[in-house]
Computed example of a mutant assay.
Amino acid sequence: MCIIETQPVIETRRLTLRSPGAQDIPRIAALANDPDIARMTQFMPHPFDVGDAEDFVLHVASQDPSKAVAFVIEHDDHGPVGVIGLHEGDDHSPETGYWIGREFWGRGFATEALEGALGWTRKHWKRRALMAGHFADNPASGRVLEKAGFLYTGEVRRPFSSARGARADKRMMVWLA
């Protein structure tokens, strides 16, 4: 039986990945309330307000850590800059997703956070494969996934995106430890 930390902390060169708490709610709401961020996620609504951030923090606290974990991505100088999560996907295979606040795009934070989360996944979550996907109109996310070692599977899904209010092509990728 594998015991999973309920509130793991991951340290990378510039970032700390930790469980979100009540102190993060205003910052998460401020960063996530961006239509260009929300439309690139499957589940995030837009607008995204303090109530949505509260719901997110409560949801994370209630998750079974053997099936799902989420982290605030925190930078020493900037505070929280985004969120990354790992969860059992629709087909019960582990999947990852992330978002970074607009003012922090292009700084390598998503790649660094993803690489840190993958190391934790391999060592502590004992997963040897992870799925991820990015909407076809978000090639930047595909590049982040590629840099972290994900490969395209050739599968395209059409999930419903809450912020778009419509289905969109999602290009699937896989990471093998």
Rank of each mutant, 00 (worst) to 15 (best):
D90E: 13
D77I: 08
K147E: 05
E95F: 09
G116L: 03
A140P: 07
D77V: 12
H78S: 15
L118D: 07
Y98R: 06
F71T: 03
G79Y: 05
P94R: 09
H124P: 02
M131V: 07
E115M: 15
L114H: 00
G79K: 06
E95C: 12
S141R: 00
H92E: 11
V144L: 02
V144H: 00
P80W: 00
N138D: 14
A140Y: 03
R102P: 09
S141V: 01
G142T: 09
R107F: 11
H92P: 04
E146D: 13
G116A: 09
H75F: 07
A113W: 02
R143S: 12
T111N: 03
L86T: 05
A129N: 12
G133Y: 05
S93D: 15
A136G: 09
L86A: 08
L130S: 06
A148C: 11
A110S: 09
W105P: 04
I100H: 00
F71D: 00
V144M: 00
V83G: 00
T111P: 02
A113E: 04
F71C: 05
R102Y: 08
F104L: 05
K147L: 10
R102F: 01
G142S: 12
K126H: 15
A148F: 04
R107G: 10
D91M: 11
G116S: 10
R127D: 00
K123C: 12
S93P: 04
H124V: 07
W105T: 05
E146H: 06
T96Q: 08
R143K: 12
H92A: 14
A148T: 04
A70I: 01
H124Q: 15
G142P: 04
A117W: 04
G89N: 13
I84R: 08
G108M: 03
A117S: 13
W125E: 01
V81T: 14
L130Y: 02
W105D: 06
P94K: 05
I73A: 03
W105G: 06
G108R: 12
G133K: 08
M131F: 08
W99M: 06
V83T: 06
W125T: 00
E88Q: 15
L86H: 08
H78R: 14
E115L: 12
A113K: 01
E146K: 12
G97V: 02
A70G: 10
E95V: 07
L145D: 04
P80T: 10
H78T: 09
F109D: 01
W120Q: 10
E112P: 06
D91H: 14
H75L: 06
G97S: 15
A136F: 08
E95A: 15
G142K: 06
F135K: 08
E95M: 10
G119D: 13
F104S: 05
A140L: 10
T111S: 15
G119E: 11
W120C: 11
T96S: 09
G106A: 01
V72F: 01
G101A: 09
I73M: 12
K123T: 15
H124K: 13
V144F: 01
A140C: 11
H124L: 07
T111E: 11
R127S: 05
E74K: 03
E115I: 13
G108N: 06
E112I: 03
V81W: 01
I84N: 06
A140I: 11
R127Q: 14
D137G: 13
G89A: 10
R102N: 06
A140M: 09
W125N: 01
